[in-house]
Amino acid sequence: MATGGRRGAAAAPLLVAVAALLLGAAGHLYPGEVCPGMDIRNNLTRLHELENCSVIEGHLQILLMFKTRPEDFRDLSFPKLIMITDYLLLFRVYGLESLKDLFPNLTVIRGSRLFFNYALVIFEMVHLKELGLYNLMNITRGSVRIEKNNELCYLATIDWSRILDSVEDNYIVLNKDDNEECGDICPGTAKGKTNCPATVINGQFVERCWTHSHCQKVCPTICKSHGCTAEGLCCHSECLGNCSQPDDPTKCVACRNFYLDGRCVETCPPPYYHFQDWRCVNFSFCQDLHHKCKNSRRQGCHQYVIHNNKCIPECPSGYTMNSSNLLCTPCLGPCPKVCHLLEGEKTIDSVTSAQELRGCTVINGSLIINIRGGNNLAAELEANLGLIEEISGYLKIRRSYALVSLSFFRKLRLIRGETLEIGNYSFYALDNQNLRQLWDWSKHNLTITQGKLFFHYNPKLCLSEIHKMEEVSGTKGRQERNDIALKTNGDQASCENELLKFSYIRTSFDKI
Rank of each mutant, 00 (worst) to 15 (best):
C53P: 00
D177I: 06
N282V: 03
N43M: 06
P70E: 03
G203W: 07
P31I: 01
S166Y: 14
P104C: 01
Y154R: 07
L96H: 00
P187L: 12
P79T: 07
V34I: 04
H226Q: 07
S296T: 14
E147S: 02
E238M: 10
P316R: 02
G111N: 00
L240N: 13
Y118S: 01
C186Y: 09
T189N: 08
G241P: 00
N135T: 05
S166T: 15
H226T: 10
D169W: 13
D184R: 14
Y273S: 07
K191F: 15
Y273P: 03
L63K: 00
V55W: 08
Q303N: 11
C255V: 04
C286H: 01
E57F: 02
R297W: 07
S284V: 05
V126G: 00
M125D: 01
C252K: 05
R263W: 06
T229V: 09
T45V: 12
L332Q: 12
F116V: 02
H291R: 08
L88F: 07
L102R: 01
D86A: 02
L63T: 01
Q276A: 08
Y319S: 15
I122A: 06
C239K: 03
P197S: 15
H48D: 15
Y118F: 02
R69V: 02
S161I: 05
L136C: 01
L50W: 02
D177P: 13
R162L: 10
E57A: 09
W278L: 01
Y273F: 13
I84L: 05
C286L: 05
G32M: 13
S317E: 02
L155P: 02
V206S: 15
F103T: 00
H236N: 11
H28L: 09
I109T: 01
S296M: 09
V265L: 08
V167C: 12
S98D: 01
G318V: 01
Q276I: 05
D169S: 14
L260S: 13
R263N: 14
P313L: 02
L260V: 13
P271K: 11
H127L: 14
P79A: 08
S213P: 02
C182W: 05
L50I: 09
A190G: 09
C264S: 04
A190V: 10
V93R: 00
R69W: 02
M137H: 13
C243K: 00
G333N: 15
R69T: 05
F66Y: 00
E180V: 10
R256G: 03
H28C: 12
C228V: 01
N308W: 11
I185N: 10
H212Y: 15
G37R: 07
L136Q: 04
C286W: 01
N309Y: 12
L233C: 02
Q61F: 00
T107H: 07
A190L: 10
E168V: 15
D86S: 04
H290T: 12
Y171F: 05
K129A: 08
G262W: 05
C328G: 02
G192Q: 12
L106F: 02
N150Y: 14
H307F: 14
L60W: 00
D277E: 13
P313D: 12
G183D: 12
Q216A: 03
L102V: 06
T194C: 07
S237F: 10
A190H: 13
L90M: 13
N135P: 02
F103D: 00
R69M: 04
L131M: 15
I56K: 15
N175Q: 10
L128R: 03
F115V: 01
D165C: 14
H290V: 08
G142A: 01
L155M: 11
C264I: 00
S323R: 02
V108A: 09
R298Q: 03
R69D: 01
G333K: 04
K176M: 03
T329P: 05
P187D: 05
E238Y: 07
C209K: 01
N43S: 08
K191M: 13
D184A: 06
M125T: 01
M137T: 06
G300C: 08
Q299Y: 06
L89P: 01
N43A: 06
E266W: 08
K129M: 06
C186F: 02
G142M: 00
D177Y: 02
M321Y: 13
I146Q: 04
H48L: 10
I306L: 04
D184K: 15
C235L: 01
S112E: 00
K80C: 05
L50R: 02
Y171M: 11
K191T: 14
D75E: 10
R279K: 05
N138E: 00
R92F: 01
P70Y: 05
E168T: 13
E231F: 13
N135L: 02
C243Y: 00
H59I: 02
N42Y: 01
C293K: 02
P187H: 05
S244P: 06
H226N: 09
R162Q: 14
L326Y: 11
R113F: 08
T68R: 06
Q276C: 02
D75N: 14
L120E: 00
G111W: 03
I56R: 10
F116H: 00
P31K: 07
I306V: 12
N149H: 00
W278E: 02
F258C: 05
F103P: 00
E97S: 08
P220Y: 04
F115L: 01
N149E: 00
E57S: 12
S54V: 06
L102Q: 00
S244W: 12
T157W: 13
T320R: 11
C293D: 03
V305R: 09
M321V: 09
G300W: 05
E151K: 09
I306P: 01
D165L: 09
D72C: 14
D101G: 05
N195T: 15
T140N: 07
N257P: 00
E51V: 13
K217R: 08
K129H: 12
Y134S: 13
C235Y: 01
H127D: 09
L120H: 01
C35W: 02
L128K: 00
R110M: 14
F91N: 00
Y259P: 01
D75S: 12
H28Q: 10
